[in-house]
């Protein structure tokens, strides 16, 4: 981990990401003021992202939308990762429970992801609540599968077997031997889910199943832009989309580097020592 903090590319990406998120969260203007004399303005220094069909500043609206998407997406990812950790721990209890969890994972992964999201968001009544629940309930299987794999490895490791034979209680084994190994994987796995969740949320809102199209969110902004793409107002779609894409790219880059740092971290050395 400490090596990672010395790498300039990682630090630059992290700083950029923090800058983007901070800007979106702290941007003071709503972008709701109408200015009918200045509608359909192409991007300029005064309006960085141009203005829309009502003369609203697209830069402010994009910041607003990004903040909204990050908030809703963060909530959904948090719920989803907690659910996946709980499912993975549940599977450790008993063989029947493990069978059930594996079946549920397969079940949720055997429909096209977007279709599952649509069905879930319909079942929970759409809007913000439906969207958060749909994303949370459809993104846990992948992380659960990963955590199950890691947990099985720990369970078959000699130090865990020894701890078992020494008669430590299940709770103590979980706390002292399982969780320290699992938790870093878990939160980085959650971080890796984040860009996926943001993309899926935007797609769902774009199709009309998610957030209210009038409130600024990335999906709603781009859905409105798609009507104007045919009339040559390219910046409606391009500018907010680029902001979203750069955020997604930075997020996935940071998460992947963290994962890489973890894989090369002290854990693997420890494994080697125990095996010898």
């Amino acid at each position: 981990m400490r090596d990672l903090l010395r790498q300039p590319s990682f630090m630059a990406a992290l700083a950029l990401l923090c800058g983007l998120v901070g800007l979106a969260l702290l941007w003071p203007w709503q972008g709701a003021e109408l200015d009918l004399l200045n509608k359909y303005q192409a991007p300029s220094l005064h309006h960085l992202f141009g203005t829309d069909w009502l003369g609203r500043d697209l830069f402010s609206r994009s910041q607003q939308a990004l903040a909204q998407s990050l908030y809703v997406g963060g909530l959904a990812v948090l719920l989803s990762s907690v659910l996946s950790l709980m499912m993975a721990m549940l599977a450790m209890l008993h063989r029947a429970a493990a069978w059930m969890v594996d079946l549920l994972v397969d079940l949720f992964m055997s429909l096209p992801h977007l279709l599952l999201l649509i069905l879930l968001s319909l079942a929970f009544g759409g809007a913000e609540f439906g969207l958060v629940v749909a994303v949370a309930l459809s993104h846990w299987p992948k992380l659960t599968r990963l955590l199950r794999f890691e947990m099985k490895q720990v369970q078959s490791a000699p130090y865990y077997q020894l701890a078992k034979q020494f008669g430590t209680s299940p709770w103590q084994r979980l706390r002292r031997h399982m969780l320290p190994h699992i938790l870093p994987q878990w939160w980085i796995g959650g971080l890796l889910l984040f860009p996926h969740a943001l993309t899926h949320m935007a797609a769902l809102t774009f199709l009309g199943f998610g957030l209210n199209p009038d409130s600024p969110s990335m999906g709603a902004l781009l859905a409105q832009a798609s009507q104007y793409a045919l009339t040559g107002h390219w910046w409606f779609a391009l500018c907010p989309g680029l902001l979203l894409l750069s955020c997604l790219l930075l997020l996935s880059y940071v998460a992947q580097r963290l994962l890489l740092g973890l894989r090369q971290g002290p854990q693997t050395h420890l494994e080697g020592v125990v095996k010898c």
Binding site: F206, A229, A237
Partner: peptide, 13 residues
Amino acid sequence: CMPSFWLAMLFIS
């Protein structure tokens, strides 16, 4: 990372 609907819109534009 690319949102597919956005890429489709860019292609159209």
